[in-house]
Design a protein around this nucleic acid. Structure first.
Lengths: 244, 244
DNA sequence: CAGTTTGTGCCGTGACATGGCACATTGGTT
DNA sequence: AACCAATGTGCCATGTCACGGCACAAACTG
């Protein structure tokens, strides 16, 4: 349906670039102003977007979206994972993320934050590249070969000097991950952020999600990685259906 | 626009009752099956809903929604509030919520969880009634009189024996809250959950949001409330534009 | 295997989204 | 203050595309 596509396009664009005005949207979506206008009015009537407070006429997405999204991504998964996440949070006092795959990315659907002051602030809904994040690689490592092949068919973006962009290197790494039981991100997406993750598997051994401990690079030297990795792998494995 | 309304209706209904099938939706929304079907197909093509894994034909909302919503409700507010929330979290080791108003409710847009095992699991996006939650009452207490009058025009639902449903009693309570600088919820929504909250005010003294500490009733006896209240009020006041 | 409910696909009709255009409003500049 | 560019808003004739009734297929029930 035509309208639906444009309306959601508008909604996404507003979310991505808020606060944003009609003409601006018209330009970036390459649609007539009147179309954008109608879409915005409709979205507004239904309560999905709002005018920015302060009398400007620019649009922002409404909180109502958050209510909708609260139900997304498996409430039960989040609730199940919580005890394990809390345990990791207590043991490490670092940020703990629960992420699921979404296409060529992974999305944080639940988190516990470190109490330390040097902080990474990753709000819920952040999308990390699947090939350059610990959770992404953990999920990938236990995915079907078909899945992996399909993903590797397209090329990967480079974010830092350490990003793995070569298909063969990535395949090799996935094998190591399966052997170790955990994945490591050594600043492959953002230079100063490291992380260690392990997957949550369902009864068929397929990855449902992954839990990671994300740490500023300065606090996770190479020699500490194995111990943290084993901790994460062991703790998270309790969530997999077979019990480990 | 007609289509847009129905499509979002479908999306909301899927979110609320997922996993749910076509006929079921047709019945509860009182729309022809074909209409629902078309809406679902469109939503699916755009990636907002998915078939439940496992071969059933029931629908659930996709994680993509969470990505959209991640931008909602003021990223900057969440980031600004984080240090203060973290401070409260460390001092109390109880759940700390950041909520904004949404009509007759308040929505949790950010949170930090207690590490204690007796836990309240309130996922992001949970909507609490404005008259029966600490954050709701904190926001209300600093709202315009017009706003309050308008809200009080309709009657309030009773949730527990302690819920304030009488307009006059509520007005009186709001006055007390303004004097004390913090609001208290003594199991007025859920019997076993208490909370203490204070508002974040903008330059004009209007409430942007509120931060609460939410505690199982058993851990917050009456005599402890004032001290916790003062702590919350004082800590949160640093976020208000005038600096407290 | 019959009976019932649920999901899927088709099609003629006409409601309604489209997008070009003109007007109103805003805000920045001289 | 006055001008100008850019933005937001509203209208309308056109024809596209969503509507919903219906019929078939598929899945579940007992």
């Amino acid at each position: 349906m035509r309208v639906v596509a444009t309306v959601f396009q508008v909604l996404e664009e507003v979310a991505a670039r808020q606060p944003v005005g009609v003409s601006d949207l018209a330009r970036s979506l390459d649609l007539p102003k009147s179309t954008i206008q109608r879409a915005l009015v409709s979205l507004h009537e239904l309560g999905w977007v709002e005018q920015e407070p302060g009398g400007t006429r620019r649009w922002v997405v409404a909180i109502k979206l958050l209510v909708l999204a609260g139900r997304a991504g498996g409430l039960d998964l989040r609730e199940q994972a919580m005890p394990v996440m809390r345990e990791l949070s207590v043991l490490t006092d670092e940020n703990v993320h629960l992420s699921v795959r979404s296409g060529r990315g992974v999305v944080i659907i639940e988190k516990l934050d470190s109490s330390k002051t040097v902080r990474l602030f990753d709000p819920l809904g952040v999308v990390a590249p699947i090939h350059a994040s610990s959770t992404g690689k953990a999920i990938l490592a236990w995915s079907d070969d078909d899945d992996i092949d399909q993903l590797l068919a397209e090329s990967f973006e480079r974010y830092t000097g350490r990003t793995l962009v070569d298909g063969n290197a990535l395949r090799e790494e996935l094998r190591t991950i399966r052997e170790l039981g955990y994945s490591v991100n050594r600043g492959e997406w953002r230079d100063d952020v490291r992380g260690v993750a392990a997957p949550i598997l369902d009864a068929q051994g397929r990855p449902r999600a992954a839990i990671s401990v994300a740490v500023p690079a300065s606090r996770l030297p190479e020699r500490r990685i194995p111990a943290l990795g084993r901790l994460v792998a062991e703790t998270v494995s309790r969530l997999s259906v077979n019990g480990g």
